[in-house]
Amino acid sequence: MNIKDLKSVTNIGTFKLLLLSCITGGIYLLMWMYRNQARLNAILGQNIVADKFIIGLGVALYWSGVASGSGNPVTLMINVIALIAYAVMYVMWAFKMRKALQHYAVTQYHFKFKMNGFYTCIFTIFYINYCINDFETAYNEHLSFTNKNSDHLQPQETVTETVIEEVVETK
């Protein structure tokens, strides 16, 4: 597996995802999830959610739209329940994806991929998309940090060896 495979699955910037979501009233997010879910599952090596979960999101979005135009208290209640279900399901999906991405980073690339829980809860799919796009950069930063640390330790070991050699020579 190549580290670029993850970003190539989604292949969309976060701003573009937000813009398309606003233009389509959230329908594009469902399409994005449905289209990318199987490929993300294959790369991450986990089944994050079943296709039925994404269909459930679509049903919740549909019912929130159907019930939004009426002044009837029953349809208003359906609208509120559907919107709450829709939001909760997105947050659930985002946290499951967050856990899968962090597990993937540890098992495949041996680094801790830091993802903010607050951002995951508030920005859900947009934050996950951002993190997927940023995964390679975070890994490269991890590598440069570990290389700097190992470079920093290298001269100390050399200095220690030199001091030991000088002490041995003086005796």
Rank of each mutant, 00 (worst) to 15 (best):
K112M: 13
Y28V: 12
L29K: 10
G117F: 09
N41M: 07
I43N: 06
F113S: 11
S21C: 08
A105R: 00
E165L: 11
E161P: 03
I132D: 05
L61S: 00
E141W: 08
S64C: 05
A85P: 01
T120I: 14
L30K: 08
Y104K: 02
A105N: 08
V49G: 11
K4D: 15
A100H: 06
I84Q: 03
G56C: 07
K4N: 11
G56D: 10
F118P: 03
L29Y: 06
G26E: 04
N149I: 15
N147Y: 00
M92Y: 02
D5T: 12
D151A: 14
I122D: 02
L20R: 12
I54E: 11
T162Y: 11
I125F: 10
P155W: 10
E169S: 14
G45L: 09
I23W: 05
V91S: 07
E157G: 04
K148I: 06
L17M: 08
V66T: 11
V66F: 14
H103E: 12
W32L: 12
A60F: 13
G26Y: 10
G56L: 09
D5I: 04
T124V: 11
Q108L: 06
V74G: 00
A138E: 15
V49R: 12
S144Y: 09
I3N: 00
S144K: 11
W63R: 00
M115P: 07
G56F: 13
M77G: 09
Y127A: 07
M115E: 09
I3M: 04
D5A: 11
A85K: 05
I78S: 02
V168A: 15
K96W: 07
E136N: 04
G69T: 10
G69I: 09
R98N: 03
T158F: 01
L19W: 13
L143P: 00
T170K: 15
L29F: 03
V106Q: 11
Q102V: 11
T14R: 13
I84W: 09
V167P: 05
I125D: 00
S70P: 05
Y62V: 13
L83H: 10
T170A: 12
L20D: 14
N79Y: 04
Y28I: 05
V163M: 02
T160L: 13
I54L: 14
A82S: 15
N41P: 01
T24M: 01
Y109Q: 00
Y34Q: 03
G25M: 09
S64K: 09
L57Y: 05
G65N: 10
G71D: 09
S21W: 11
N11Y: 10
M97S: 12
Y28H: 13
V168W: 10
E157Y: 02
I125E: 10
L44H: 08
G45N: 03
N47E: 15
T162E: 13
I132S: 00
A100G: 08
M31G: 03
N2A: 14
Q156M: 08
R35P: 07
G13H: 14
I78A: 05
F95G: 02
W32V: 12
E136Q: 12
V168H: 14
E157F: 04
I81N: 05
V80Q: 03
E141C: 03
